[in-house]
Amino acid sequence: MAGPLQGLKVIEMAGLGPGPFCAMLLADMGAEVLRIERPGTPKDPHDILARGRTHLALDLRAAGAADQVLGLIERADVLIEGFRPGVMERLGLGPEPCLQRNPRLVYGRMTGWGQHGPLAQAAGHDINYIALSGALHAIGRSGEGPVPPLNLVGDFGGGAMLLAFGVLSALYEAQRSGQGQVIDAAMTDGAALLSAMMYGFKAAGRWSNQRGENLLDGGAHFYDTYACADGRYVAIGAIEPQFYALLRERCDIADDPAFDAQMDSAAWPLLKLRLADVFRTRTRDEWCALLEGSDACFAPVLDWDEAPQHPHNQARATFVTAHGLTQPAPAPRFSRSVPDQPGTRPAPAAAELLRRWGLDADALSAVLPTGASHD
């Protein structure tokens, strides 16, 4: 595997959502990721989050399973798990025995509520975690209820990316101290952290709790989406005065004095209606021809099928096709240690990967039980 994390050894305890996405990020960057999963786990050919991994099927509740995993942990740099607090401890794989076997191990724990607190043992999903952080309340239209922003804010942004940042931070610290540590990554914490700028705006009196009536939540006429003559949408983000002036010029409203007071929030509802009338006069493609690539801060709102076909995304190879699936390419970009693209180099089989990690034949037989899946 190529990439800046080449040589990093990661054990992923198979789970859902943010854990697999974090492991995918590390694998995309060249880490060797060994995914431990239950025997009989079906292989989903459409599971993009599972790309770049080696799979090892182990029954973690079977006698001796913990010893087998601890043997792998001795050779790993990172372990990622996403179970409820206490599950890994009951399996004999909590931080204490793992760090005893490998004092340099970075032990990443991904949960919704965190390892402690009154809700730590409660079930939940992305929508619950971002609700508790304050983020969900802020998303939606004025006079309407909160709108779930898919599961991007909790699972992936406030969860997986926070954990990946924590893992790499702990690895950097371990280079100096020679010691690993435990990372408690909670989606409630991460979603709150993503909201830092808004909390600052609110403290300064520049953001209210009234949903859909603020600068960046669709309240402003110059920062919103608009329907076009063909029913498709465009996105406008002309915040700065010079960009706003260009938008007015291109939309032929430069001489309309109603649009002069850009930051008068009391005028925003009426100006949104006026601007909506303007955008309904042309199709989305006609607006693209007029505005795209200019400083008017414009983009067409593309669906999942259109986005990979856009010329900018194609020029940057933002999406790739591997194993018949169109999927986002690894990111960010590196000038030297360029990662492999998905599908260009298959992940090694478990036996091959573990030999690379230095396990001998006897150790291999212990961790590759008869009948287990090792592909």
Rank of each mutant, 00 (worst) to 15 (best):
residue 82 G to N: 15
residue 72 L to I: 03
residue 147 V to W: 14
residue 265 S to M: 09
residue 264 D to T: 02
residue 122 A to V: 10
residue 148 P to Q: 12
residue 300 P to W: 13
residue 236 I to F: 03
residue 306 E to R: 13
residue 282 R to P: 02
residue 29 M to V: 00
residue 219 G to S: 02
residue 37 E to Y: 07
residue 42 P to V: 12
residue 269 P to K: 10
residue 104 R to A: 15
residue 35 R to Y: 00
residue 292 E to N: 11
residue 231 G to H: 09
residue 234 V to H: 06
residue 343 G to E: 05
residue 234 V to F: 03
residue 119 L to G: 06
residue 357 W to H: 02
residue 98 C to P: 04
residue 65 A to T: 04
residue 301 V to E: 08
residue 318 T to Q: 12
residue 319 F to S: 03
residue 332 P to T: 04
residue 209 N to C: 06
residue 375 D to I: 02
residue 339 P to G: 11
residue 202 K to P: 03
residue 217 D to Q: 08
residue 313 N to W: 01
residue 167 V to D: 01
residue 373 S to Y: 15
residue 110 M to Q: 03
residue 199 Y to P: 05
residue 114 G to A: 11
residue 358 G to K: 10
residue 198 M to R: 07
residue 251 C to P: 07
residue 238 A to E: 02
residue 293 G to P: 04
residue 294 S to N: 01
residue 279 F to L: 09
residue 232 R to K: 14
residue 228 C to S: 10
residue 371 G to C: 14
residue 174 A to M: 14
residue 317 A to L: 11
residue 10 V to E: 12
residue 209 N to I: 04
residue 259 F to W: 03
residue 111 T to V: 00
residue 111 T to W: 00
residue 241 P to K: 03
residue 332 P to D: 05
residue 23 A to T: 01
residue 202 K to C: 07
residue 224 D to V: 00
residue 13 M to L: 09
residue 260 D to M: 10
residue 60 L to F: 10
residue 244 Y to I: 08
residue 59 D to H: 08
residue 238 A to P: 05
residue 369 P to W: 09
residue 341 Q to T: 06
residue 369 P to L: 10
residue 107 Y to K: 06
residue 207 W to Q: 13
residue 371 G to W: 14
residue 362 D to L: 12
residue 298 F to T: 08
residue 142 S to F: 14
residue 332 P to C: 04
residue 253 I to A: 06
residue 230 D to E: 08
residue 264 D to A: 13
residue 67 D to P: 07
residue 66 A to W: 00
residue 257 P to M: 12
residue 85 P to L: 04
residue 223 Y to M: 02
residue 133 S to G: 09
residue 145 G to V: 12
residue 334 F to N: 00
residue 315 A to K: 10
residue 137 H to I: 00
residue 166 G to M: 06
residue 295 D to R: 15
residue 237 G to R: 11
residue 141 R to P: 00
residue 12 E to Y: 11
residue 90 R to F: 05
residue 362 D to S: 14
residue 131 A to E: 11
residue 229 A to F: 05
residue 236 I to Y: 03
residue 179 Q to V: 10
residue 331 A to T: 13
residue 252 D to T: 11
residue 40 G to L: 13
residue 156 F to P: 00
